[in-house]
């Protein structure tokens, strides 16, 4: 069942892959992100983040609040590179 539940839709990562990574020793959101690229797609983890936090809490038998969230990185939402440039010249 868990291999049919997609948790990170941007990077197409299933619940099973996340559970396997946790069982292989990943103990934080940051590690899961780096090993599986969860939360690294267009939504930057806004969809999968809370779900992964709950999975970690459940697997590690810890309160959800004690699982540290991802570092939020600018620019938060995808922004075309051209938008950062004023006019045609810097």
């Amino acid at each position: 069942m868990t291999d049919r539940v997609v948790i990170c839709r941007c990077e197409d990562i299933t619940e099973r892959e996340i559970l396997e990574a946790i069982r292989a020793g990943a103990s934080s959101m940051e590690e899961l992100k780096r090993v599986l690229r969860v939360g690294m797609g267009a939504c930057q983890g806004r969809t999968c983040g809370p779900l992964i936090r709950c999975l970690l809490a459940r697997e590690l038998d810890l309160p959800v609040d004690s699982i540290r969230e991802w570092t939020r990185r600018p620019p938060i939402k995808p922004v075309p590179a051209g938008t950062f440039i004023q006019g045609d010249e810097s």
């Binding site: 267009a42 930057q44 620019p75 995808p78 922004v79 075309p80 590179a81 051209g82 950062f84 440039i85």
Partner: peptide, 19 residues
């Protein structure tokens, strides 16, 4: 963004996700 698009102008439309 300025340096990169100066070199490859097509990257103007590439969406930046993270820094």
């Amino acid at each position: 963004a300025w340096r990169m698009t100066r070199l490859v102008p097509a990257l103007r439309n590439a969406a930046v996700l993270r820094h």
